[in-house]
Design a binder for these strands. Structure first.
Length: 289
DNA sequence: AGGGCACCTCGGGCGC
DNA sequence: TGCGCCCGAGGTGCCC
């Protein structure tokens, strides 16, 4: 659920709320969240006494920079951060608590327990798993049309699974991939090597525009996504195809369909995103009959 | 390499 | 109508 726009929204909020705070101790109640170091007790002990300096983002990962440590956190599907007074009751599914020396605490909640945390020495995080294999940041200046095409245009994989693969371009998940492919007028099952030059331009522009506008809107609130301040993102009101199966396409009026591509629920407008038949004219045969 | 599944829980939908 | 069960939701890693 949290894709680049949601993680970026959390990053900005956390930066404001916990930047400068000193961690007194850490409580871990679900050990599997902590991936590095192997022992959650060592994770907690290492963080005690350190001060949060800033919160950065790499793809869908948060990088919490402390004095002498980097905490890498992935929210996966439903991970959430919130800042609380230490007296407030601890809500269900709270797995990690960072107790500050000012009576406040940062709490990590994750109903589905999929999220991960890795602790590194400064400078080590970007060269070790899970960050070392990540692709280009789509909103950075380094993401040019040329760089995008160089990375993926020759591949024979379907374009949707390709864009979901964080090794090439980071930050896209199921929602924004469907939105970007619709905006670009490209069917998710097209293989990358079949896209023509103008289609690459449209796809590149659509990725930048979709993610950029979603960041501006504070992300999407599909289920109950809430940022660190408890505010809801608003981009879900601007979604054009995701979750709109059986609705009329906003562009042409055709009915939006939901299918499965690469094992993922996929929303497309069959008119705006045609899938060329393997032998050229898929509909002619149907009509002739 | 790419498909399938496992990881987990909740809630919605459906059947009885 | 109410209860209970099954499945879908999706990011990523791993296995084949």
């Amino acid at each position: 659920m949290p894709e680049l726009p949601e993680v970026e929204t959390v990053r900005r909020t956390l930066n404001e709320l916990v930047g400068g705070k000193r961690i007194e101790r850490v409580t871990v109640t679900l050990p599997r969240i902590i991936q590095r170091p192997a022992e959650p007790e060592a994770f907690a002990a290492a963080l005690a006494g350190h001060t949060i300096q800033s919160v950065e983002r790499r793809g869908k990962f948060l990088r919490i920079l402390l004095d002498g440590l980097v905490l890498v956190s992935h929210l996966r599907m439903e991970g959430r951060y919130g800042v609380y007074n230490q007296d407030e009751p601890v809500e269900l599914h709270t797995h990690v608590r960072f107790h500050f020396d000012d009576g406040m605490e940062l709490r990590y909640k994750d109903v589905r327990q999929f999220g991960t945390m890795h602790l590194f020495a400064p400078g080590e995080d970007l060269t070790h798993a899970p960050l070392n294999k990540l692709g280009i940041e789509p909103l950075a200046d380094t993401f040019t049309l040329q760089a995008f095409k160089r990375e993926v245009a020759h591949r024979t994989t379907k374009i949707k699974p390709l864009l979901l693969n964080q090794a090439y371009v980071v930050g896209l998940g199921n929602i924004y991939v469907d939105e970007a492919l619709f905006t670009a007028g490209i069917h998710p099952e097209r293989t990358a090597d079949t896209l023509r030059a103008p289609e690459w331009v449209r796809l590149y522009d659509a990725i930048r525009a979709t993610l950029g506008r979603a960041v501006d809107a504070g992300g999407s609130s599909i289920k109950s996504y809430v940022n660190g301040q408890g505010e809801m993102g608003m981009f879900q009101h601007q979604l054009l195809v995701y979750g709109r199966d059986d609705d009329a396409c906003s562009r042409c009026g055709a009915t939006i369909v939901k299918t499965v591509v690469g094992g993922r629920g996929t929303h497309t407008c069959p008119a705006c995103q045609p899938l060329p038949g393997k032998r050229g004219r898929p509909k002619a045969g149907l009509r002739a009959k």
